[in-house]
């Protein structure tokens, strides 16, 4: 550090500011990763099976529930494979 810098301070970007910018990104990323969203999926799947089974005969495996992230929104996708007509 030169004596001029000592008196007037330097123009270097401060490292703390850099740390803050980097951490803001890292933490935002980390927090979006551990969203507890999929927790309710198994329960939802089970209840859907129960409801649909009241009317149609379906297998547990024939109902698929998936949560997908597309950009800023999430898509809940429910796939139900119906039994072939006339086979009951």
């Amino acid at each position: 550090m030169s004596w001029l810098e000592k008196i007037f301070g330097s123009n270097q970007p401060k490292s703390a500011q850099l740390a803050k910018e980097r951490l803001t990104l890292v933490i935002a990323h980390q927090r979006s990763d551990n969203q507890p969203a999929p927790d309710f999926l198994p329960a939802l799947q089970k209840e859907l099976i129960d409801v649909i089974s009241k009317y149609v005969k379906v297998n547990t495996d024939d109902i698929k529930v998936q949560l997908e992230k597309k950009g800023n929104y999430e898509v809940l996708e429910v796939n139900i494979v119906m039994p072939e007509v006339g086979r009951q």
Binding site: K14, S15, A16, A19
Partner: peptide, 13 residues
């Protein structure tokens, strides 16, 4: 001196 994050920064993060 700008070399360490302030407590306000840490709390904000």
């Amino acid at each position: 001196e700008g070399e360490m994050l302030s407590y306000k920064d840490v709390q904000e993060l």
